[in-house]
Design a protein around this nucleic acid. Sequence first.
DNA 1: ATAAACTTTCAATAATTTTTGAAAGTTTGA
DNA 2: TCAAACTTTCAAAAATTATTGAAAGTTTAT
Lengths: 168, 168
Amino acid sequence: MELAAAKLKFIEAWGKLGSEWGINRTMAQVHALLLISPEALTTEEIMENLSISRGNANMTLRDLIGWGLIEKQHKAGERKEYFFADKDVWNIARQVAKERKKRELEPVLKVLNELSAVTGNEKDPELITFKKSVADINKLAGNVDKTLETMLKAEESWFWGSVLKVFK
Amino acid sequence: MELAAAKLKFIEAWGKLGSEWGINRTMAQVHALLLISPEALTTEEIMENLSISRGNANMTLRDLIGWGLIEKQHKAGERKEYFFADKDVWNIARQVAKERKKRELEPVLKVLNELSAVTGNEKDPELITFKKSVADINKLAGNVDKTLETMLKAEESWFWGSVLKVFK
DNA sequence: ATAAACTTTCAATAATTTTTGAAAGTTTGA
DNA sequence: TCAAACTTTCAAAAATTATTGAAAGTTTAT
């Protein structure tokens, strides 16, 4: 397979994966494009490459900056802004984990804790089942939270070394 | 907080979390409802409880069965089908991990392997960057795959015991 | 102060996803 | 065999989400 075709395929696959995981398709594609680009690109180049509008490109790039996945770069003597992606895949994974933890896991943990305080007749099967479900999910979510916390601080080789060693 | 209010809040929170992770909102809500229900419910009851149509309820229930998260139950002497959810949260986590691995991770691994075979001028920075990105993602995805594989086979207490012990 | 170069905004539009509900299909018991 | 009880299908409608593009905004150089 040639590079040009491979690039298209990669961008498409990344976009699909993103959309399956609740990330805007275009955002994932822009990220893919920057990830495989050795040079920083301008908004113009990104628009052209992916056939998207200026407004879409602008908003998507801002979102990606918000996720901590890309950065702006200024070239001396130029007015244009260039964008480039962090190429370290472990950093990317950590950054995504960090943001989703903050945006999704933490709010859910907060709700679960509130729901633990539900009151009622302690003999009611409805209440018993409810409390057990909430408690169990809470426990699992707590473990996920702790593991992510470790991952956020860890070096890739240490993390996988430890995990895979345990699991032989 | 009273049970009725708590249930609503739980169903809403579960639905929101689902939609943030690429799972249909209604599907997550039906799952939530069955998860906190001590008894199996009929399509009719689910429709009423969540104010959804018969068609929607039927399709959603089929999807949930496809994900291995709920099952049909037949009550002696009744024509109606009852649905109930596995209440073991670790089983749920495993089931979701298993399905997403199969539906999403494995196809991506397949594409990444194909993309590793890209050809071209080995001095071209475009090609160098592309190959490195693909190789790095491949490695990470491979580690995730192995860890999920372990998780699928493991008991909850063993899994978290091992992971959390390593991470102190 | 002006104009060119560039970025941002956002209402309108388009695309996609979800839901509805009535009709068709199936199963069961008499 | 019939009809009641129940389930499934799917085209149309609704809801949601993403995209466009032109206008407004900003920055910089002269």
